[in-house]
């Protein structure tokens, strides 16, 4: 459910591969045909998509951590059941996406190892901590809200397996945003202390959420190829603007203040935000965010502690298979 800055491609394959095939491929894309796993595709298309889809999958998996942090401390059974279901969905979304990425020829194990070794990236947003219950509301409302903005156009992505995975994800996702907003409404209608907690969470999450859409268009150098290949249908800034315009009235409804005193509405009705601190974004991507080390450590621990289960399951399957073969031979 969370893509961000994952849309930079590896540039052109011109001169490297068969020009005739490449132009046939582009003609198929231009005719809005879907590209399927066994179809010919330029190596750079394969590489770009493998990276984008697997980073998207890693983001879903790592995204379970900040919210999982609050499952045992949810304020009611209703909230706990909803949060648990949401975190289960994120696991499911990660698995749909890994399956889509694998169709491009990289194994699940390689993809997971890439994440665990720190080589592959995931969405920077999950390197921020969830300090209070209001953070869970804010994540659903804003982080999932931003993710939905990003993901809806991906349902029409040129690569069939990715588009199909995104359709499933988007169908399931809208409950995530609504449950988050419901938490915010409840807090904002509660005591002054609860409302202050909601405001504090918005203050901390607003800017990192805007960064989820990736660098501004003028520095996002590779997006041309992704656009040409119809992997990407809207620019980072377009999506960011759409998100802000949708969110401002929702914050108003809650009676919360968006922590950007310089934000103004222009003549077209769009809300123009103040400059974003891209240094912070770069730092978080480089591994220096508040929770980067914790997140990776938690994923590695889960992977290592689950190793015996994977080994036992495979050993059992092997044993049964050889027993069946022996019986058949008798």
């Amino acid at each position: 459910m969370y893509t961000q800055a994952l849309n930079s491609s590896d540039g052109d394959d011109r001169g490297v591969e068969d020009v005739a095939r490449a132009s046939q491929f582009q003609a198929r894309i231009d005719a809005d045909e879907r590209i399927e796993p066994n179809d010919w595709m330029p190596a750079a298309y394969r590489k770009t998509l493998t990276r984008q889809i697997s980073q998207h999958a890693h983001s879903e998996i790592v995204g379970m951590l900040p919210e999982g942090n609050w499952i045992t401390r949810a304020p009611s059974l209703r909230r706990k059941a909803a949060l648990l279901a949401k975190v289960q969905d994120e696991c499911g979304h990660g698995l749909y996406l890994y399956a889509a990425a694998e169709t491009l020829g990289t194994s699940r194990e390689e993809l997971v190892d890439g994440m665990l070794s720190g080589k592959a990236k995931y969405s920077s947003i999950f390197n921020y901590p969830t300090l209070t219950w209001a953070d869970i509301g804010t994540i659903g409302w804003l982080v999932d809200g931003a993710a939905i903005m990003n993901q809806i156009p991906l349902c029409r992505c040129s690569y069939g397996p990715y588009a199909r995975a995104m359709i499933r994800v988007c169908k399931e996702e809208s409950f995530h945003q609504r449950q988050g907003f419901e938490i915010m409404v409840t807090l904002c209608r509660g005591t002054a202390e609860q409302k202050a907690m909601a405001q504090n969470a918005l203050d901390r999450w607003w800017w990192p959420v805007l960064m989820m859409f990736g660098p501004p268009d003028q520095v996002s150098q590779h997006s041309d190829t992704s656009t040409k290949w119809k992997i990407k249908r809207f620019s980072n800034d377009e999506l960011r603007q759409k998100f802000i315009d949708a969110t401002v009235p929702q914050a108003e409804f809650l009676g919360l203040t968006i922590p950007d005193p310089g934000m103004k509405q222009n003549e077209n009705g769009n809300w123009v935000h103040s400059p974003i601190d891209w240094d912070e974004f770069k730092q978080v991507l480089a591994g220096n965010g508040p929770c980067n080390r914790d997140r990776l450590a938690a994923r590695r621990k889960a992977h290592e502690e689950g190793a015996w289960v994977r080994e036992a399951a495979m050993a059992y399957a092997e044993k049964r298979k050889s027993r069946q073969l022996a019986q058949a031979a008798e």
């Binding site: 279901a85 289960q88 969905d89 499911g92 698995l95 749909y96 399956a99 694998e102 699940r108 199909r164 995975a165 499933r168 399931e172 994977r310 399951a313 495979m314 059992y316 399957a317 049964r320």
Partner: peptide, 21 residues
């Protein structure tokens, strides 16, 4: 869709969890 599992029993179990929530 697809999934990874050691054997058919586990594959069915995982399919239930992943695809029929």
């Amino acid at each position: 869709g697809s999934l990874h599992a050691a054997d058919a029993t586990l594959a069915l179990q995982a399919a239930r969890d992943i695809y029929t929530r």
